[in-house]
Amino acid sequence: MNRNGLFALCFNALFALFMMGPLIVVIGVSFTPTGYLEFPPSAISFRWFRAILDNPDFIDAAWISLELGLASASLSTVLAVPAALAIGRERFRGRDALQALFLSPLTVPTVVLGVAFLRFLSLFDINGTFVGLVLCHAVIVTPFVLRLVLASVTGVDRSIEMAATSLGASHWTVFRRVTLPLILPGVVGGWVLAFITSFDELTVTVFIVNPSTTTLPVRLFSHITQTTDPLVASISTMVILLTVLLMLAVNRLYGLDRLLIGGEAR
């Protein structure tokens, strides 16, 4: 018995193709032996992958993006977890304002944010520094972490924590042994989402990098404004590969659907 009709199958296939299409093109182009963007490639060649090694500035930029992603995702998680606990369960004056503040980076146009960050960082004379980048990215990705953590916080039964307290656990022990494990899907999910968002961020970052802190997206962007060789494609393919590996690892450790769709803690 076929549960999906022909129409549904076609629709789903087309949808998948539409989603995957650009990736397939990018991966295809990266194997071309020619000096221009060619699809499908006329032959298979690793020429443009070798070319990455001859462009250490791309590799440096990739490292910066990686460190930036790790640092800003971690910083925003450290900020967002206590904030989510307070917003999600306490009733205090200014609670709505606090939540709006944390989520506001989502509502401000990124170009405006970029200009604002540029002015702000210049005031403290840290424009273009790695620290400056981390702070700005933390602001940009915090809403993502907050929303995921908030969703899991509101799902936690307060009486579970009361039970732990009544059994003799201190505030910190209750958090470490009970609350944190229960909201972990939200925390991990938020962190991964924050990392990906930071790694990928271009619009704001363009305003606040200097040559020594150029991130990979900014580096790629400035490269394609000058030339259009398949180097961009081979680098993108590497990024896709790394992302797939990361997702496989997360899936192995944790279960992707639990992370992205949410579910009961183990």
Binding site: D157, S159, I160, M162, A163, A164, T165, S166, L167, G168, A169, S170, V178, P181, L182, E264, A265, R266
Partner: peptide, 18 residues
């Protein structure tokens, strides 16, 4: 509360699910 040493059973049982 944590030093009172009372045994409490909650309406929702409040077991640690993990």
């Amino acid at each position: 509360a944590r030093k009172r040493g009372l045994g409490i059973v909650f309406q929702t049982y409040a077991l640690f699910p993990h």
